[in-house]
Design a protein around this nucleic acid. Sequence first.
RNA 1: CGGGAUGUGGCGCAGUCCGGUAGCGUAUACGCCUGGGGGGCGUAGGGUCGCAGGUUCAAAUCCUGUCAUCCCGACCA
Length: 492
Amino acid sequence: MAKNLTTRKEDYSKWYNELVVKANLAENSAVRGCMVIKPYGFAIWEKMQAQLDKMFKETGHENAYFPLFVPKSLFEAEEKNAEGFAKECAIVTHYRLKNDPDNEGKLMVDPEAKLEEELVVRPTSEAIIWNTYKGWVQSYRDLPILINQWANVVRWEMRTRLFLRTSEFLWQEGHTAHATRDEAIAETEQMNNIYAEFAENFMAMPVIKGRKTETERFAGAEDTLCIEALMQDGKALQAGTSHFLGQNFAKAFDVKFASKEGNLEYVWATSWGVSTRLMGALVMTHSDDNGLVLPPNLAPIQVVIVPIYKNEEQLAQISEVANKLVAELRATGISVKYDDRDTQKPGWKFAQYELQGVPVRLAIGPKDLEKGSVELARRDTLKKEFVAQAEVVEKIKGLMVEIQESLYRKAADFRNEHITKVENFDEFKKVLKEKGGFISAHWDGTSETETKIKEATKATIRLIPFNAEKEEGSCVLTGKPSAQRVLFAKAY
RNA sequence: CGGGAUGUGGCGCAGUCCGGUAGCGUAUACGCCUGGGGGGCGUAGGGUCGCAGGUUCAAAUCCUGUCAUCCCGACCA
């Protein structure tokens, strides 16, 4: 069993940090706040990317790429957006180094190489993209523009954690331009739904869809939709956001088009994104004290086969069976690894693949050769059974679906058990402290109340859920009338 | 940026109070035995003790500064 992993109960955040490193997902780098995503972690990210990219393209989007640097004058054009990010921007001020005359062998910034205009390293790309779109749009015939980019962005964070919050992270950002308000709103909703579908069907992570309050809204947006997930420690995590930007950026960057009727109008905009933060969400949704647990739909290796042998002849016999299974499994689209390295012991391999969350493990030894069986172990339940070699491919095909569903169900049960309705503020504080999770409560709709609750409890309104029934009530803090419950939680 | 903690072979740590030849576990390399859940025995290699100053005959140890990491706040996807 995983020897050195701190348990979730002992210290959840330590467990997370250790797991990310020990499962070979990522590690800290020599650059403060920036991580190295290791091959195994990147393979999971690539699977996420591939699926999302497919979903974006199926809904008519195309990929493009915009610059890393944003001239300060462009950055500040949309004031609210600029203000929102101002405090966490990295800025390029110079373009050259030179030998330091006072310090042999060292370099210094050449003071004569100061840029006339500073460049902001993008914390998000609205500014540079809208400046570009200005040149692309003249007529309603040029619309809509449906573009996505896969990129890195930099937000100078004070406290960082692998995947959850790093100064540089990878993400995709979609930026669309539309002729009408309704069309842009529909796009915003569509993308939020795509995120939800991805989270639930591929990450096996249940999410709640809803709308952000004014305080939590994206800087520069008129409306922010989101999906929120619940982690095993009872904290919420924003897993994706989709913004209706109204005409804010069109006005800031003067992006107008001639409508069918011949009027000059500002275009309507959306932007939407998910980041490598999803990796953190994936870890914290399913994994256990033995290590990572990956849903089959995102596992880089879905099945691993470990031979158990005492000598070369045995290995040769086992490999014959194993290679046949590999071929059969691959033919059905299952990714499988036959780990016949002689440099590691079987027990070590078991532990390692468990730590790395491989959904299904097969072990084949001399006894199996006699019996025509294999030992099959499920990562999610840790249960082992012997399966006839002739039946194992069918069995695994079924398991891929079953494990995927089972992980989702388990996470959904946990999530549902951790949505608690409360009717007054004492109850609110008690539930937050003792149970955690989402708290469903009435709210009077004001930012003042939201802020007071945040200051008193550290819980914020995660979202105003879409699926909530309309229910008259009174605000949990002020007692003022409220038409709907909202979900509060402490958040990542 | 404030409060706290920690920096010692690749990794995890002891040694620091009370200055006197740098140690343990693990990992690595080699050999043999092993092989159905992180194996056993033996041998070997590997450390300017975060960095820079200072005190001292002598500093991992004491003093000053500095940097980094982690935890708790403020900020945030």
